[in-house]
Nucleic acid binder design. Structure first.
Lengths: 328, 328
DNA sequence: CTGAAAGCGCTTACAG
DNA sequence: CTGAAAGCGCTTACAG
């Protein structure tokens, strides 16, 4: 068995009480400089480290944030993971990574989060039922939907302003003098795909530009196959708006395979601005999601709720910007 | 304050002792079916869930695995993260994700891992000093270096057989009738880059094929710039072996930019077989790392050490295979 | 400012 | 098989 050095061991060596040792390590507690010095010296000598579990048990608080994610194949999400982890570390919080295979978060994942009494949970591209979300609420655990919304407005969400962004994409494309357009959607019922479609279609309808929609799945292969199908139908449009970048890259490869020139024959616009969009092989014109700002807003909310739980619900939307490159 | 349902509450409702409630939830403990039924009914009614922290405090064990990672921009690593998370979940373990900005794992990250008394730690592309590694050992926490080795053989590591793999890459390239070759390395002192270089060079030296080495950094941009430099020198070789795929993709884009044909003018081989290597825009010939098998070996070791700590050190190496596509 | 003591929610010998 | 009790390593009123 590994022997743990406890506050008691330190207390004995330092010649103070165990409470004093505790006070040295508990932020906000008061100790004299003299005691602090004695304790720190003894602790150093013994290699003392406060036990997080004992601490959490008594305070009923943890420094763990649950981050739920599905599509790590889309580089957008590892980026999100990285930024959250980095930002939370500065605040003294660690992230418990939960990966859901399925579209929807599984009961055992919810169990895990609840068992560890996480200080907050962020759910990204996985779906969560209303019932589960209520579970977190009833446990007073702050929850935010990141880059996704529930179709009720009873929870906190942080997204890019998808509606406005896709309107701007449509307007930009129209200004490029296109005849007809195609929207390639992501997974059917995701709020992101739905909103991007709505904004895009709204402008096209308003301006009377012919348009069609094809359903895909937010993957490279999905984008690739969908675009191949479109060309094989003999109905290549003058512009394609893909609901995310990784699909857009598949679209580009498919169009190239069919010897169509980009942007001359077909223009392509994506969404996210992942690293690869800038690669010379693609040079994708896309809408940049303001990840940094989105992460910041999410953390602000969670921290505020940790300090003083309100259960506040709000749909926060942050603008991004159009990044013009070579594909449109 | 959120009120927690405790084993005591359940005990009262079920009309049994708190110990009996505990036994129902503690694997391996014995309870009669009758008691179990009573407890489960009461627990269900109250929404009871055992407190992980109290449990960890008393058993001095956790179900948390620390996973340390740096380069999430290289799709190889999110893939590794996903596979570990999935496999550990099945065993009832969760993963605490630790992202290091710097090349080397930071003291505060080590603190975190130690404070949470993690059941094991896996360190991927970040570096860890010998001193820190010893820290884990002295706390009897199993540690494995995944896809990286320390330059001492005192720790457990799981890697692809890089030496053999790169020899095979060299032999394959030679069979393609090349005149001279270039090796583009990853970050200088990583074991992977060093080993891949060693195996590759060994064969080239043996067969007397002219070769040069360029130092890069395992990123797309690094590969791109390095290849650009090589061409600008007017010394494009007949084949380039990049130490990982993401650099190889950069190399391809640079060569294309310089209007060199692949594989006719220059052949390119990568390492990893990330998803993108198969994309139509690249069709990269590469060495596939057997992630699944590597993950499996890592987990086997960690589980064995959790059950019975030995501190066993070993360098496990697993073969991968050459994936022939269009670039060589 | 400091110490003795209670208690967080569990597991686990120890009796019965 | 079950219960009463001790104890894991902390925080936090409560006195002094």
């Amino acid at each position: 068995m590994k022997h743990m050095v406890t506050a008691n061991d330190v207390a004995k060596l330092a010649g103070v009480s165990q409470s004093s040792v505790s006070r040295v390590y508990f932020e906000g507690a008061k100790v004299s400089e003299k005691t602090r010095a004695k304790v720190l010296a003894a602790a150093e000598q013994l290699g003392y480290r406060p036990n997080e579990f004992a601490r959490s048990l008594i305070t009923n608080k943890t420094k763990i944030i649950g981050l739920v994610m599905k599509g790590v194949e889309n580089p957008f999400y590892p980026q999100v993971l990285k930024q959250f982890t980095t930002a939370f570390k500065k605040l003294g919080y660690s992230v418990l990574f939960v990966h859901t295979q399925n579209e929807e978060i599984q009961p055992e994942d919810v169990e895990t989060l609840l068992n560890y009494n996480v200080a907050g949970v962020i759910i990204t591209d996985a779906a969560m039922s209303l019932k589960v979300a209520e579970d977190f609420r009833s446990n007073r655990i702050p929850l935010v939907f990141f880059n996704r919304k529930l179709n009720t407005d009873e929870f906190y969400s942080v997204c890019c302003n998808n509606l406005d962004a896709s309107r701007k994409v449509a307007e930009y494309l129209i200004s490029q003098d296109v005849k007809d357009m195609v929207y390639i959607s992501g997974n059917g019922n995701t709020s992101t795909s739905l909103e991007r479609e709505a904004g895009f279609m709204e402008i096209l309808q308003k301006t009377g530009i012919p348009h069609r929609k094809y359903a895909s799945d937010y993957t490279y292969t999905g984008g690739f196959q969908t675009a191949l199908g479109i060309v094989d139908e003999g109905r290549a449009p003058s512009a394609i708006f893909a609901a995310n970048d990784i699909m857009a890259l598949g679209v580009i490869d498919a169009l190239k395979k069919k010897s169509l020139r980009i942007p001359e024959d077909v223009k392509v616009v994506g969404f996210d601005n992942i690293d690869m969009a800038a690669w010379l092989g693609y040079q994708l014109t896309t809408w940049e999601q303001p990840i940094e700002e989105m992460v910041k807003k999410t953390i602000e909310y969670i921290m505020a709720e940790i300090a003083d739980y309100t259960g506040l619900a709000k749909a926060v939307e942050i603008d991004g910007k159009l990044i013009k490159r070579k594909t449109a």
